[in-house]
């Protein structure tokens, strides 16, 4: 139990680093780290398939997208960069204190919660659930991927045209 809680603490720290660090590249790295840690958390809770997805898609693919966006958009002039960094620091520094306070406050709450429990553990295999009960969601996935493909076509072609 102590290990699991520690894992969650590290996960929050990684997310905190992602939101506080100075450059976009480090921020992306922090997010990828948080994603990877989340997939470890999911794996140890028994969500193996979802953990694999989280690791490959979120920690992998999304980081690639974010890194390419960060590198395609160069930073502004150094003075401007420093000024915006300072104003951001002024707004972000209370965050760790807020998180610690919230964490301490919530750790004292132990009100009973009425959870409906499905026994015995589990309700079948995730593949069965996904393919035989949630086909509509699978269809939705295919559809949104199609929409995403159209989006890449529209948005990135438009870039190329504007460059001419």
């Amino acid at each position: 139990m102590i290990w699991f809680t520690l894992l969650l603490v590290v996960l929050v720290l990684a997310a905190l680093w992602a939101s506080m660090t100075t450059t976009l590249l480090r921020s992306t790295l922090g997010l990828a780290l948080a994603s990877a840690l989340l997939s470890v958390v999911m794996f140890s809770m028994g969500a193996t398939l979802a953990a694999v997805m989280e690791l490959s898609v979120c920690a992998g693919l999304i980081s690639v997208v974010l890194v390419s966006v960060a590198s395609l958009t160069r930073p502004r002039s150094i003075q401007e960069e420093l000024a915006s960094r300072r104003s951001r620091l002024r707004r972000i520094w209370p965050l760790p204190l807020v998180l610690i306070a919230a964490g301490v406050a919530l750790s004292f709450v132990h009100a009973p919660v009425d959870i409906v429990l499905h026994l015995p553990k589990g309700d079948g295999d995730v593949r069965t659930v996904l393919w035989s009960l949630r086909q509509l969601d699978l269809f939705g996935q295919i559809l949104i991927l199609l929409a995403g493909a159209l989006g890449v076509l529209v948005l990135f072609r438009k870039e190329a045209k504007d460059d001419d």
Partner: peptide, 28 residues
Amino acid sequence: LSGRMALAQALVITVIVIEVVVVVVVAG
């Protein structure tokens, strides 16, 4: 907690797919 991990996993897999598409579109 509710013992419906298979269902929750099925949901999360779909959420991850949606998430990546949204991120790509937002990046564009």
